[in-house]
Amino acid sequence: MAKVSFSMPDDFLRKVSALGEKTDEIIPRVLEAGGEVALEKVHDNLESVIGRDTKSPSRSTGELESALGLSPARMDKNGNFNVKVGFSELRPDGESNAKIANILEYGKHGQPPKPFLKSAKTQARKPGIEAMKEKLDEEIKKI
């Protein structure tokens, strides 16, 4: 029977062990780098659909755009870190920003849908992954 063994370089092993101790510090920064890319895409798409193809002049106040944001990276109950792109709640008129965004995304009776979230998710996937890879490499080099 043939036998093969690999030996990892000592420098690589030191970095991996140091990374193991600092994982909880590094992962949130890496995820937030990817979240920033997604946030930018959502904002650009939202900006492009607001007021577009309306029968009457747009009554947009800019509140929905200003309510868009990125949550800090948090650990969920399963031990996974997450960041979320979304809208802060409640407008001055008492309506929910999430409700307004949902109506804009999926439409309602008499208002056609103007999807901006789904397309942003698709557009941000590869650039977001690349941004996270770059941030991870940057963090590893600091070790």
Rank of each mutant, 00 (worst) to 15 (best):
V85I: 13
V30A: 10
N80Q: 15
I103P: 00
T122I: 12
I140K: 00
A67K: 15
E25H: 02
F81R: 12
P112R: 14
E139N: 06
N97A: 15
V30M: 11
E134W: 01
S5E: 14
E105A: 06
M75D: 01
D53V: 05
F6E: 04
A38F: 06
K118E: 14
D10V: 12
T122S: 15
E47M: 09
S56H: 05
R29N: 01
T61V: 06
G86K: 09
V83Y: 07
N97F: 12
E105Q: 04
G34A: 03
N82Q: 13
N80F: 13
M1V: 08
K108L: 11
R59D: 00
E36I: 09
L19W: 08
E36F: 09
P113G: 07
D44I: 08
D93W: 06
E40Y: 05
N97G: 08
L68K: 05
E95L: 03
K3S: 15
S66V: 03
A2R: 11
A98G: 06
I143Q: 09
P9E: 15
L46H: 05
F116K: 00
I50P: 10
G51T: 00
K99I: 02
N82D: 06
I103E: 09
A67F: 14
N97D: 03
A98R: 08
P28N: 05
V4R: 07
A101H: 03
